[in-house]
Amino acid sequence: MNYTEKTKLIQTRAAALLEAGEVSYVLGWGATRFADKTRARFARSPEEAATLVYNEHCTQSLAKYLVDDRWPETRIAILARGCESRAINRMIRDNQIRRENLLILGLPCEGTDAERCRSCRAHDPVVYDELLWEPNSTGAAAAAELSRYYRADAVDALSAAEKKAYWDDVYARCIRCYACRNACPVCSCRECFVDMHRTGFQGKRHSATDNQTFGVTRAFHVGDRCIECGECERACPMGLPILAQTQKILKEIEALAGDYEQGLDAAQDNYLGAFDLDDKDDFM
């Protein structure tokens, strides 16, 4: 099935749902004035449903929009690939959204032009109400060109001095716009620690140290719940390797505790929110 056919399927189903009044809107992608870019589109009528598109340029993961509409009168339909579906599970686990408010239209995915899709191991949605087309058996892990922790692996390969130089460079470029935080589906705090002037967790200077404090703290806050969608990097205007920090945390958790993937279901605990009596302490 090609993208034109898939787009048609999406438009038809969206129009039917909106026609029947089953959902308040369908959250998907629409075209922009650039041929190789799409953006989120909220289709609220059968007519608007006809403007939904689906192609390899749909690089944005849509799930984060759900926290902006937590108490909908009618259900929201969302187009969900692997990344959106995992984000939804994690957001449900974090009490941010409710499953009953969603109609999840599952889209088995073959990847987009975003770089992070090349390391994706979760093309098929893990939660959905209906699948709009059959999963592509070649999807999934086999198709990943890059290793799961490709960014973290690259940094791990550096010497201590090189690591320091690497991050000094990264955090000298960070402008602390917090776009990574805004795009991240598991960043769901009402008020971020960086905005809490009175508590003062985050220094306000524009210094590499304060930028790094932000980067590392953010990694600690989301790392063990990261669903690896790469929205942080997509949103970063400076093109910084933000995924490296969360990948490192996931990589270490996996080394300590075995298979670890978030968002597979809506009841999953996160590593730092639990413990095992036999956890290692050989770092002491």
Binding site: A152, A160, K164, A165, Q245, K248, I249, E252, I253, D281
Partner: peptide
């Protein structure tokens, strides 16, 4: 345990 690894990772 994680912190130690993360610090090292961050130079």
């Amino acid at each position: 345990m994680l912190m130690k690894k993360v610090l090292e990772f961050n130079g």
